[in-house]
Write a protein that binds this DNA or RNA. Structure first.
Length: 280
DNA sequence: ACTGATCCCTGCCAGC
DNA sequence: TGCTGGCAGGGATCAG
């Protein structure tokens, strides 16, 4: 399940693989993947027109914002969210695979496939600035790896929120790009109980939390992402961050610091694993 | 302002 | 062995 580090890894890979390439042909097998700026499926006629309009366009760049992949086609922007199981692959073998829903063929003969087992992922076709502003992507919060995201900034945000800290970290409108895996790892690093109210976090704790957010996300990127379920980058390589996980998915395991048994419970409607002794 | 339920969808696993 | 039902999962959205 791709979070910020995984999406960043994919964006960098795709930038190398497909930027500069011109779309010659598009094959769509499951059309609901394509959505308008509000996330709604298109009516058939409009969808056909929009997809046809992509032919001949050149991919100028592939970048990331929050957990979204952005394909800059000049006057059109493709905004893709991979959700749980979405993946882009430049491997020709993916073209005919089960669950491959969209295949782009470029003028140089190479291909890019969108494959998504659970079909939760989406590709929005954005044709103007007005549409872009309507996307949930544009409502994403601060980029946690940007310089603007300082410990002071985080502490101010925390003071204004009464939600539990896990829910706070998962809310994309606050901080963009953190999902369940990194939220659990960050809270373990910062030694904070996931159920604590955000506004109960002290300045000292906020500084540690801020460091945890930056470090865990950067570690994720440095190791090519965490391959938990099905995540692979655009070349099909797995990441290595899953080997560095300390609490996520470690139900029943023992804390690496105090050796007590880790606890798993639902917090903010997500499976949450933490150390009840170290995280207070 | 926040919480909880619902929806999207398939694979997987426990239980029969 | 084969079937079925329930669950997981990110996040938008809606009701309370």
């Amino acid at each position: 399940m791709p979070e910020l580090p995984e999406v960043e890894t994919i964006a960098r890979g795709l930038q190398n693989k497909v930027s500069g390439k011109t779309i010659q042909d598009i094959r769509v097998r499951y059309s609901k993947i394509f959505r308008d700026c509000c996330g709604q499926p298109y009516l058939e006629e409009e969808r056909k027109q929009l997809i046809a309009s992509l032919t001949g366009k050149t991919i100028k760049a592939v970048t990331r914002r929050a957990k979204y992949l952005l394909f800059d086609l000049g006057d059109i922007l493709l905004v893709s969210h991979l959700r749980m199981t979405g993946r882009f692959s430049s491997d020709p073998e993916y073209v005919d695979k089960k669950h491959t829903h969209v295949v782009l063929t470029f003028t140089d003969g190479s291909v890019l496939s969108y494959n998504d087992t659970r079909k939760f992922g989406t590709i929005q076709i954005i044709t103007c600035e007005e549409e872009r502003l309507k996307t949930t992507m544009s409502r994403s919060g601060i980029e946690p790896l940007s310089d603007a995201f300082s410990a002071d900034y985080l502490f101010d945000m925390l003071k204004q929120s009464k939600r539990n800290i896990k829910a706070f970290l998962l809310t994309q409108e606050s901080i963009a790009g953190i999902g369940n895996i990194y939220a659990d790892e960050i809270l373990f690093f910062a030694a904070i109980d996931p159920k604590r109210r955000a506004n109960s976090i002290s300045e000292e704790e906020a500084i540690k939390l801020h460091r945890g957010i930056k470090e865990k996300l950067m570690m994720g990127i440095a190791s090519g992402g965490a391959s938990i379920l099905t995540y692979v980058n655009e070349s099909g390589d797995k990441g290595a961050f899953q080997e560095l996980l300390q609490v996520y998915g470690k139900k029943g395991c023992h804390c690496q610091i105090c050796n007590q048994k880790l606890l798993t419970e639902t917090v903010a409607a997500r499976t949450t694993t933490y150390c009840p002794y170290c995280q207070t």
